[in-house]
Amino acid sequence: MDAHVRRGAARRLSVDPGAADALGRAFGVEGDPSVREAILAALVRIGGVRAVEAVLPYLRSDDAALRTGALDVLKSLPESVECLPALLDDPDADLRVLAAEVARAMPNGAALLCRRLLHEHDPNVCAAALDVLAEIGGPDCLPSLQVCAERYVSEPFLRYAVATAVARIGGSQAPGS
């Protein structure tokens, strides 16, 4: 079937709340980037928990385009907040890095990331959380940043990341900027 037909089908399904599962399955096997985009747009338009659940498995995909597509949908849907605590506690560190990005778009994202930082031992997850907190965090995040700083005292990148976040939250200039 031609790509333009599949794109049209995705657009038509965007008004059918019951189509989220089918669109999610189609996303996983679709090879045409423009059709993938139409599917993701349809899922965002449908919204709700079903749309979140339809893309969630793709965060674990080996295909970078599937991962980033799923991430874009999750960041667009407020219902993602319901699965965010589980994502941030997932055993897979790569998934926790992506979860930090989802948190960036959620109203309670900073609080969840601060909680995660208190016991997070993967440097890339900490860096992802710090990057997000530098943008959305407030003064109540500073104790968590301090814990992180103490954990990575001998790791230059993490020290830099903490200093940047602290500076941004405090309203001063980031190091090296």
């Binding site: 990057d131 940047t164 190091p175 900027s177």
Partner: peptide, 12 residues
């Protein structure tokens, strides 16, 4: 997409 990583690479 991480501003932190871009700044770090520039810093180094």
């Amino acid at each position: 997409d991480s501003a932190l990583v871009r700044r770090w690479v520039r810093h180094v």
